[in-house]
């Protein structure tokens, strides 16, 4: 008897979430198979690659990155440059400077930056907050208002602040949000349920299940993503059928392997190469685990991950 593989396409599929407007808009999710299993059934939308820029500018101590952004100083200029990076499907503006424990840039300034970046970006835009639940809630409400019609993705709404963000961003101004929970399938589900109870449909939300760099508890995020995807497809759990986004940049670039100087660990080689490799490895593994989009910082990473996706799909 010859071997006949048993294709495992599921009756349920992921919801499809579109970000951006016009020709450059990208769709996330929609497939009815496990990540990258195109041999089971066609995958509706390939995983997408976002490239992260910070309102505080790139780390210009990294020579390649400095060269890539040479001559670009404002966030808008950085964004234009990032959009031109090979492999980038969208750009993600990280409002790092909004952090109340850092620069504490005020809401109006942040909104202005977002407007300029949106203006300068031919690709869809995601905006990542500073992580302070309170500040992000205030920021996103105003950003959502200012960028009406751009269909931007706001990262993230968490348990502490989801209400205001979800209602303002999605209901009032028609944007998309990422629902962020911390590496736990039940917390993810609970947040999705709470958001849906505000009358928000699943095609306006993506899940951010938490992030960790390779080697730093990555097994938790990998298994959580596995379980979320199995629940969505095999169990037809509608509260977990949203696409998954994995902003890996911040974690990948803050672990020991990516920050220790070459002086301290000469055999490790240049810092920049290590950081990019950490980012490539983490983002690729997240795509294998089930991310429908990843966000990376280094143009080298974006290119490699895009190449990976083309090679596998």
């Amino acid at each position: 008897m010859p071997f006949a593989p048993v294709p495992q396409a599921f009756k349920s599929s992921l919801k499809e979430v579109v970000i951006g407007a016009g020709e450059s808009a990208v769709a996330l999710g929609g497939e009815n198979v496990l990540p990258l299993y195109s041999f089971d059934a066609p995958i509706k939308n390939r995983p997408k690659v976002g490239i992260e820029i910070s309102d505080l500018g790139p780390d210009r101590s990294l020579p390649e990155l400095a060269k890539f952004y040479e001559g670009a100083s404002s966030a808008a200029e950085l964004a234009a440059r990032a959009c031109a990076a090979p492999g980038a499907d969208f750009v993600c503006l990280w409002l790092e400077g909004a952090d109340p424990n850092g620069e504490d840039r005020d809401v109006a300034d942040c909104v202005k930056i977002c407007r300029e970046v949106a203006e300068a970006s031919p690709l869809p835009l995601a905006v990542q907050g500073c992580g302070s639940p309170d500040k992000d809630a205030r920021l996103f409400e105003k950003i959502a208002e200012a960028l009406q019609g751009r269909n931007v993705l706001l990262l993230s709404a968490k348990e502490e602040n989801y209400k205001g963000i979800a209602v303002a961003a999605v209901t009032a101004y028609g944007q998309k949000i990422a629902a962020e929970s911390s590496v736990d399938i039940n917390l993810a589900k609970q947040l999705n349920v709470l958001i849906s109870q505000l009358g928000i449909a699943g095609d306006s939300t993506v899940m951010h299940l938490g992030a960790s760099a390779a080697g730093y508890g990555f097994e938790y995020i990998a298994s959580t993503t596995d379980r979320v995807r199995l629940a969505a497809l095999a169990q037809n759990d509608a509260a977990l059928q949203m696409p998954v986004i994995a902003p890996v940049a911040a974690d990948a670039w803050s672990v020991k392997e990516s920050v220790m100087s070459e002086d301290e660990f000469p055999e490790w080689g240049p810092v920049e190469r290590r950081g990019a490799d950490m980012e490539i490895c983490t983002a690729s593994a997240m795509i294998a685990a089930g991310a429908n989009a990843v966000i990376v910082r280094h143009p080298r990473s974006a290119a490699a991950v895009a190449e990976l996706i083309s090679a596998l799909l």
């Binding site: 490790w268 490895c281 690729s284 596998l312």
Partner: peptide, 28 residues
Amino acid sequence: LALASVFVLKYGSIIIMGDMSYAQALPL
């Protein structure tokens, strides 16, 4: 490196690479 990361999760028992730098080894 990207493919190796995928095969670590999905079912590669032996993963052969053309080379491996220290920078690649650390995350892998």
